[in-house]
Write a protein that binds this DNA or RNA. Structure first.
Lengths: 111, 111
DNA sequence: GTAGCGCTGCTAGATTTCAAGCACCTTCGG
DNA sequence: CCGAAGGTGCTTGAAATCTAGCAGCGCTAC
């Protein structure tokens, strides 16, 4: 799923290449079929091959991904998660400016 | 693993309770044994039961977790990830103050 | 047109995981 | 001390996953 989300869409071959410790091509195809059975991806034909896309839109999926990480590793504290992220990211000055602006905006809304 | 990281340490019963769509107790025990075989957890005896702890410390694990989410869902942009996190979190004024202070500090360091 | 390449559909076997059940051990209460 | 409760070790079988291999389809180049 990570690969599909990262690429936006992906073929079996792309998934295979992108996977670390790569399994066999057969396995990837079986995996994608299972993911489709479970409703996590759809495929459409593109020329001779299948292109798989997630059924849950990226934005929604990343919300849950962030929420899960916050829950699992930061005891539910988003503030702590943001802090860790800023701390480990070495952001540029421009990035920091953008974040500061965002914080100001959040302050307005929270009022 | 999520459960173990969330609790810091956990017994088989705790993992079972914490799992959504709970599998059988046997399955949880097998799972923990496999995780131990793969080196992801260790156990030590506590009274009559086993308590499992992660081998990789929480802080290190959460760094990779964050990095993975950033990579998968934000095209590697931590700035975008932080923005999304702030946006979806409805943080308190005090939290926002703390983050602003952190941003200032990051600015100092990046200079 | 047709030969070749790449990809899918399908089958089948090996391996791994899921689950249940039972014997034995550790603790706790009376 | 002794029995009960709850946990683990182990075995066994069912189910799912991993993998290989082959036939057939769809493009592409010649």
């Amino acid at each position: 799923m990570d690969v599909v989300y990262q690429y936006g869409q992906a073929t079996a071959a792309e998934v295979l290449d992108a996977l670390p410790d790569p399994p066999s091509y057969s396995t990837v195809r079986a995996l994608l079929r299972v993911l489709e059975d479970k409703g996590h991806v759809r495929h459409r034909r593109q020329g001779p091959r299948y292109v798989f896309r997630p059924t849950v839109p990226r934005e929604k999926a990343r919300r849950s991904a962030l929420a899960r990480v916050v829950q699992t590793f930061f005891d539910g504290s988003s503030q702590a998660a943001v802090a860790a992220l800023i701390d480990q990211s070495s952001l540029s000055g421009a990035d920091l400016d953008r974040l500061e602006a965002l914080i100001d905006r959040a302050r307005q809304e929270g009022r």
